[in-house]
Design a protein around this nucleic acid. Sequence first.
RNA 1: GCUGGGAUAGCUCAACGGUAGAGCAAUUGCCUUACAAGCAAAAGGUUAUCGGUUCAAAUCCGAUUCUUAGCACCA
Length: 886
Amino acid sequence: MSEEKQSASMPTTYDPKAAEQKWYSYWVEGGYFEAGKRPDAKSYTIVIPPPNVTGMLHIGHALDFTLQDILIRTKRMQGYDTLWLPGTDHAGIATQTKVEQKLREEGLSRYDLGREKFLEKVWEWKDLYAGTIRSQWSKMGLSLDYSRERFTLDEGLSKAVREVFVSLYQKGLIYRGKKIINWDPAARTALSDIEVEYKEMQGKLYHLEYPLKDGSGKITVATTRPETMLGDTAVAVHPEDERYKHLIGKMLVLPVTGREIPVIADEYVEKDFGSGAVKITPAHDPNDFEVGTRHQLPQIIVMDETGTMNDEAGPYKGLDRMDCRKQLVKDLQEQGVCVNIEEHVHQVGHSERSGAVVEPYLSTQWFVAMKPLAEKAIEIQKSGNGVRFVPDRFEKIYLNWIENVRDWCISRQLWWGHRIPAWYCEACGELHVAHDAVEACSKCGSTNLRQDEDVLDTWFSSGLWPFSTLGWPDDAADLQRYYPTSVLVTGYDIIYFWVARMIFTALEFTDKNPFADVLIHGLVRDANGQKMSKSLGNGVDPLEVIEKYGADAMRFMISTGSTPGQDLRFNWDKVEQARNFANKIWNASRFALMNLEGVTAEDIDLAVELGTADRWILHRLNETVREVTRLIDGYEFGETGRVLYNFIWDDLCDWYIEFAKLGLYGENEQTKRATQSVLAYVLDRTQRLIHPFMPFISEEIWQHLPHQGETITLAEWPVYDEALEASQSAKEMELLMDIIRAVRNIRAEVNVPMSKKIELLVKPSNEAVLAILTRNEEYISRFCGTSSLEISVAVTAPDKAMSAIVTGAELYLPLAGLIDISQEIIRLEKELKTLNSEVERVEKKLANEGFVAKAPAKVIEEERAKMQDYAEKRDKVLARISELRG
RNA sequence: GCUGGGAUAGCUCAACGGUAGAGCAAUUGCCUUACAAGCAAAAGGUUAUCGGUUCAAAUCCGAUUCUUAGCACCA
């Protein structure tokens, strides 16, 4: 291929769009992402944290998925039978809320449609968004096995859900009970504890006076929710409280309703807080519920499931709870009952999904008894046989939660979700829990059975995800082969919701940890460090990033931009930097391709005589292979990115490619062939190393390079070669680079551009160095821009010359007329000063007996070598100064 | 209140016991035949403060200040 033709086919600027589309369909059509094609290989499995089918993916998903793709692609190249299983979550409340919102715009509610019709609508929505999500996955370049895609409401997964429910019920770990739960009056459903978000709010503390029935006085109580007083069934005081001791057992008259309620004694009350008396509303407060149970108090529910006051509220019946509060307070003030209103900052629970203020509400719900499940999980985790958290501090967070977990309310009064597999006999009231619809009551024989209306908490099915997606409870082949999974990658925000639940359900039902490792990453924040949210409108759409800078740039930025477990600030500058990096790779490859005409994969031969730079870059590549492999294994993607960036940009592009030009443009055919081989080889391995991070551009380039195989996706991952490390090329190259840098410095300092040729005299410190320099004379000459070059241990310094001392050699640049000797002396003295302080530092260190006695030999040796080097340089600089002076 | 995270160059962040690094911004010189999305050079730091452990601390351990998140809250 001619140079012109090659250049024309590869423009100087990389255009991601064409390549991305082309290669993704190539990969999918080639079936390269499908698991099961390497029956003899070890398996490596990741199940995707299923995104909600509520809408589009955001940049946080992009981070989560990119990290997984990096792992999967690396392992695939390393020869594993990799499975990355995709899927989506039905996301009960979230999705139902969205669809209801849409209906509301049409003036309809879910009740207008009825359960069946409404669910049809939700399924339509689901299909629409699952499609959108799939298209976003493809744009991000994710190597998912689409043949195994799952949805939490799939038949298979639903079967798993029923199996778990029935089994837990039979073990007595699922029960139905009347308790105070968190009620979302907007979505009209119960919530679990963790679905409630507490927000600090400016509220009011209302002080109310309840008169004693016998007219002998009053008791003051305080509340932040005065409307609940309508459901008060007692006032509690501490049994030891002298102020109230005599009142215990007496009756109070509840204002408004006139209901009589007792003064009771309970240790729950703190004497020193507030008035020392607490109004007790068992049906609307979890603590009061406990107190009420202890004292067998009536439980009076004063509002309905929409938050509207009911019959028990008397004159306030029909009012919304917030309106009732206003009206009631006004009335109580007029009656002199509400004696004081204080400003009060407190935490108010809001529904995570609907945003409504959550009402503690007494109702009959289904619960999972968490204690036994948690105990098992804690024991295994603490015995060291649990899941490995990365970073490990998240293990503490997990344990802390599971050690304090309370029973899990799993029933939701929604329509979108897994219907609870429980049937009630209409005739005798018997409860039947079963996998399949119960036809006849086993107790009375009636066939009149009604299924429980409620559905299960979304997280109930998500908790089974690692094994339900692989075919559990059946003895499926995929379950055998790919379970337990290798690693779970997710954000720290759902450790409680999801990670913990997967662990204890997996332990209970599969007797195994669901994954060996759990990699926890941070959240993506905006440029100001703020959490991205819809309400703030500061979210970043991954598609926009891909559109502007390409998927590879986004992936690289997002995956390498942070340290494990730490939040990541999104900013466009960093994406631009990643884009520039991609472009750099592109241009390095363009250069190579222009100079590899006719070279095929078979021509690449590294066993020939190689130059210093060739051996050096192979050595650097080798080190990079080792580092990148180690770092990816340790999930240290930020560090991996830095290693790759430095290798490619600095070593490969800035140094090696420049050095390679000499061989490529030179007359010596053999040297040219050798250089071509090294260049092609290094570039090929570089594409492989960068491929997990930047799949598209690496494939595009790899396909242009001399290669074997259909796709880089299946190319072998490079392996560290111990044998290469024996070479001295690194030290040789360091010397050359030092000389070149020193000359460049001086040129810059005295304003002599590279285009202007100069004389250069190099005095090596010994014969060995002389040999190296002589061997690389061409390099030195080229990169120092010399008109004449003298390399000899016999070099005598010219009078009017700039000089530089590097490790192993002295350099002289006769620049008479361009420099002032007194300035040169000042410059050298400055250098002397730094060298002196270095020498002093190391000297002091080596003089320290403790250091010499206790530090590792390697460290001491390094310090000694430094000492020698610095001292040598210092002496030479010193000599040069006196020479110039004299 | 309890439990974590963070505090490092002007900005955004690295560095997991051995001389503190990068990108961006600002400075200087370059359209050098892969790349101006680039090349080259120089500059920028008492690693929040105070103690301790260690031959050696940004790193490990205390304390303090500021900041951030989660959990729990007394009406």
